[in-house]
Design a protein around this nucleic acid. Structure first.
Length: 300
DNA sequence: TAGACGTGGGT
DNA sequence: TACCCAAGTCT
């Protein structure tokens, strides 16, 4: 089926991986036939650091309300932030809103299929640009996310997990695995991600179900533990991120501008609270009204 | 390149 | 209880 022309030096059975994906892929809504590049871009943006099960209902609502980029672009920032709900990292919503405006104005309301054009849009980085090119348009593009990095680290390099990310090296690793033709390469990109998500997981991987276990370098090495530099754990409790989230949650829950007193109730330490409110204003996630109250942007 | 940036569920 | 983790991007 898929003959790996550029990856001929690997002995991984990538045809078996593609077949496994075709047979077992989860029927996620953004994978359905007829989903546009816009639908894929929205899903990929929402899925940045946010689990599938939380994205799915929000994605459904967005596609119903804003089926084209121009539909979202016509909406206010505040309404977009409300619809983003508690997906997290709300700056993603603002950037997607801005990207939608650019796509409507500069690309005839059609999400570009070219990686470099996609990379020029706000909120679209190395991963998302290639994910859209591959999954929406069937292009050959090395899609590298945390799952793919882990699969490559194990199956190709024989390590317990991927070390710190290095975009160019990671892209080259995956590029070397992809077949030359667009369609089979796009399928393999999706298959590598799916494998990392449902089989080659961080903890307790299901190697007995893995279609490439026979040739996996990690298996051959005796499944050594991760030996790279310590992973950095993200603190959350008590950080500015938590405080910003609390403040924004007050604004999302309000129907209009709120007073400073209402925001004060969200966090008891005044210094941190004020600093976070300032940063939200700087980031454009909050606006101040003429009478000194606070609101989501565009809702003054 | 390291650190900031939300949120919630699993262990 | 803490810590870990989840389809990253930007500075």
């Amino acid at each position: 089926m898929n003959t790996p022309t550029t990856g001929a030096d690997t002995r991984l059975d990538l045809d078996a991986l593609a077949d496994w994906f075709t047979a077992t892929a989860r029927p996620l809504p953004w994978r359905a036939a007829g989903v546009t590049g816009w639908g894929v871009l929205v899903s990929e943006t929402m899925l940045q650091q946010t689990p599938v099960n939380r994205v799915q209902p929000i994605w459904d609502e967005w596609m119903r309300r804003w089926p084209r980029p121009s539909d979202l672009a016509a909406e206010s920032q505040g309404e977009v932030l409300r619809a983003w709900g508690k997906l997290g990292y709300p700056r993603r919503a603002l950037r997607l809103h801005e990207a939608a405006g650019r796509i409507a104005a500069e690309h005839d309301d059609v999400v570009p299929s070219d990686v470099d054009t996609l990379l020029a849009l706000p909120g679209i980085g190395a991963y998302t640009a290639r994910a859209v090119a591959a999954f929406a348009y069937g292009r050959r593009a090395p899609v590298v996310d945390t799952n793919v990095r882990r699969v490559v680290a194990r199956a190709v390099h024989g390590a317990g997990d991927a070390g710190p990310p290095s975009t160019n090296r990671d892209l080259a690793d995956v590029d070397a695995l992809l077949p030359a033709e667009d369609a089979p390469a796009a399928t393999l990109s999706a298959a590598l991600m799916e494998l990392g998500q449902v089989v080659c997981t961080v903890r307790s991987p299901s190697c007995e179900r893995c279609p490439i276990a026979a040739d996996c370098a990690w298996q051959h090495n005796g499944r050594p533990a991760y030996a790279g530099p310590p992973k950095k754990v993200q603190k959350f409790a008590g950080t500015d991120r938590q405080v910003r989230g609390r403040l924004l949650d007050v604004l999302r829950g309000a129907t209009g501008p709120v007073t400073r007193d209402q925001l004060d109730a969200a966090w008891n330490e005044a210094g941190q609270r004020d600093r976070c409110l300032d940063s939200l204003l700087v980031d454009g996630l909050v606006e101040q009204t003429d009478d000194g109250r606070f609101a989501l942007p565009g809702e003054r």
